[in-house]
Simulated assay, not measured.
Amino acid sequence: MVTGAGNDESRIVLTKPVALEGESDIDYTAPNPLQLVLSLFKNVMPGSDLSRFQLPPIFNIPKSQLQCFGESVYCIATDMLSRCNGGKSPHDRFIAVTAWSISTLRPLIFGVAPYNPILGETHHVSSGNLNVLLEQVSHHPPVSALHATDERENVEMIWCHHPSPKFHGTSVEAEVLGKRQLKLLNHGETYVMNSLNLLIRFLPGPGTDWVGKVKIQCQETGLEAELCFRSNSFLWRRGNHRSVKGKIFDSSSLQTVYEIDGHWDRTVGVKDISNGKLTIIYNAKEVISGLTAPIVKDPKEVWPTESAMVWSDVSQSILSKDWEKAREAKKVVEEKQRELLRERDSRGETWIPKHFTVSHSKEGGWDCSPIQKWVPPAPIVVPL
């Protein structure tokens, strides 16, 4: 944990990113988490939309969902983006992008979740030459935008996420709508991909996993990938746990050029169909192991909308396991949000994002475009 110096209003609380199991030095889970979770949903009807569902702090980890999205980009032990940019051929780069997309997944903890970001909340962090900026551009429905740039590598990322969680009786599944773009500007290539769904399973055994299918497309090279991510089956077959299988193919001929197989929390390999050669393209222990928390480089430059500042009192109370204080602190944050909404409504004002332009259509859903070409360096940095 890192706490910025200053009075209560300027306190900044940052914690280690979510990494592989067994690496966390803090236990966030409450006793009997399954019993607590089931009691939480006892009055919720199957099929209910949970996007407005408020969790008590005992079910929260001490960070916002914006921070979790950001960590999947800037908290990484291996420079996967440089590999994407450094690929000598379109095939090399596409394989590297596929590996990078897998690297954005993190194992999750059953029974706890990050805070729902408030409207206008931001998270701004730098890791080396990579500058990352996120903003919560809509509260109901929740929509998060991410812009990340590396001027040295000439790489840009633009994400737009709209989670839509629903209760299904024995599970909760959050469909993460929106798209992710990775632009390798030196090569004139844009890779577009979707996000996986988050599955929280209560019965027959509790667990939290990423599931579904990811499609990666590069229009400039004509290459595509289809990846299928699976969780444990009801028969508890270990082989399916966090497995990923798929293929990379030429979109014009539909000819498969590579097959992908492995487990995203262990290793993933790619097999060249032309010669049968198998290469490991992703090793979770090397990429998302031993991660450290960001630190505050310049407290005076941290925006008041920064996630680590907005939720600092709640996070500090959770870390201290002072649940009554955490409830009060969370209530203060949420009530301030409601008060600002009432003030805007009374003046007939519509809130406008500061860092993104946002659009929505029935066909395409939500779309976010950054206002600035390059993300500036941040006052919060990842130690290298």
Rank of each mutant, 00 (worst) to 15 (best):
T78Q: 15
R152F: 12
N85E: 13
I76V: 15
Y258C: 08
E343R: 11
L199M: 09
N283Q: 12
N232A: 10
E189D: 11
R237I: 11
F356M: 02
S274H: 08
V112L: 03
T15L: 00
W311G: 02
L108Y: 06
I371K: 05
I102G: 05
I61W: 01
F59G: 09
F59Y: 11
V73Y: 11
I295Q: 13
G269C: 09
P376S: 14
E301F: 00
L133G: 06
P57K: 04
E349S: 06
I26L: 13
S127E: 12
Q181G: 00
I12E: 06
N240E: 14
E173I: 15
F59W: 07
P299Q: 05
K247W: 08
V296H: 01
S233V: 00
Q35C: 00
Q337I: 01
N283P: 00
V381N: 01
F41L: 11
G4L: 03
P163Q: 02
S274C: 04
I95V: 14
R152C: 06
S361D: 14
I288F: 02
T29H: 02
G4Q: 03
E224Q: 15
A96W: 01
Y74C: 05
A308P: 05
L108F: 02
H355C: 07
V268P: 01
G86F: 03
N232S: 12
D8P: 00
K321H: 08
S138P: 04
I109E: 13
P107S: 09
R238V: 15
M193Y: 14
H123D: 14
K330A: 11
E301D: 11
V257H: 11
T221A: 05
L203E: 06
G47L: 06
L133P: 03
H168Q: 10
K362Q: 12
I318D: 06
D313E: 14
T357Y: 03
L319I: 15
F53R: 00
A326M: 04
Q337R: 08
I109M: 14
E153L: 14
G290W: 05
L14M: 12
K331C: 15
L119T: 02
T122H: 03
N186T: 13
D27T: 08
K297T: 11
Q35R: 12
W351A: 08
R327W: 05
P370Q: 04
D265H: 06
H187R: 12
L20F: 00
E175S: 07
V310A: 04
S346L: 09
L185F: 02
I281R: 02
R238G: 11
S253V: 09
P117W: 06
R342I: 04
V382F: 07
F167N: 05
N85H: 08
P56G: 00
R327S: 14
S369H: 13
M45N: 07
L278R: 10
S252D: 10
P57A: 09
